[in-house]
């Protein structure tokens, strides 16, 4: 069985490249193939998005991919069915990222149990607050060994970051700026100062930077301060091209190396 210690070791690496994409996009059946291709191409770990009708933290590109995925018939039920052979094909860590309502309706305990059953390592749920997680859901996540990943933004207080660090069992998802997904990261003094501030806090959890990471330059810049960085919108754009093939995915990943 996969353990969180194993996952945590992997995300403690250097200059890691993580990729986000929406489940069921561009086609309903593409989810697992894309994961396998990404691993072969050299991605270090993955976030698979659970499509939702009202994704408030996302910009237009990921919104559209979610809508398309929903029209394709994607749901958590379908996704877990598709992920049954996940660990026959993919060994790198996999996280599911989605909005809380879809998980609440599926059942938080069933969600965690199914994650464990198919070998998903953790979940990123942007609109599940820290308070509600601690009060209601932490024991369930722990029971099934599923990591809940918290977000930190430039406005998050040091005190709150310390608390998040203590609760984190895999990595902390550091937002490059206060923004929705798909905005180009402006690598400027302000963001570098913020990355440096976090780095100098000496947190025990690995740090992975996301939002606005779209190319080699922004990835390099971010990983000067963090264990890894996550590319979402730029990759979803690649998937949106007509007749996208495995070679397009490999080429995209290679451009970061």
């Amino acid at each position: 069985m996969r353990t969180l210690d194993h996952t945590r070791k992997i995300v403690q690496g250097e200059r890691l490249l993580s990729i986000y994409y929406t489940a069921g996009y561009p086609t309903l059946e593409s989810t697992l193939n894309i994961a396998a291709t990404l691993e072969k191409s050299g991605a270090d770990f993955l976030e698979i998005g659970i499509p939702y009708s009202d994704p408030v933290a996302d910009g237009p590109v990921i919104q559209e991919s979610s809508q398309k995925a929903l029209r394709n018939g994607m749901s958590l039920k379908v996704l877990f069915e598709q992920l049954k052979p996940l660990r026959e094909q993919v060994q790198i860590p996999v996280f599911l990222m989605g909005y809380f309502n879809t998980i609440l309706q599926y059942g938080v305990e069933k969600f965690c149990a199914d994650c464990q059953a198919v070998g998903v390592d953790g979940a990123i749920i942007p609109d599940l607050p820290l308070y509600e997680y601690e009060e209601m859901y932490q024991p369930i996540f722990e029971k099934y060994g599923i990591s809940n990943v918290f977000l930190v933004t430039p406005q998050t207080s040091d005190e709150r970051i310390r608390k998040i660090d203590a609760l984190s069992t895999s990595f902390i998802y550091l937002l490059s700026s206060n923004a929705t997904t798909g905005k180009q990261l402006q690598v400027e003094d302000r963001s570098e100062a913020y990355f440096a501030r976090i780095k100098n806090m000496g947190l025990s959890s690995p740090i992975v930077i996301g939002f606005g990471i779209s190319n080699r330059e922004t990835h390099q810049k971010a990983t000067n301060y963090a264990n890894g960085a996550i590319v979402g919108t730029a990759f979803v754009r690649v998937l949106g091209k007509e007749n996208v093939a495995a070679a397009d995915i490999s080429e995209f990943i290679a451009s970061f190396k």
Partner: peptide, 9 residues
């Protein structure tokens, strides 16, 4: 208050 961390402050 089920908001993403970006809105927490």
């Amino acid at each position: 208050a089920y908001v993403p961390e970006m809105l927490y402050p």
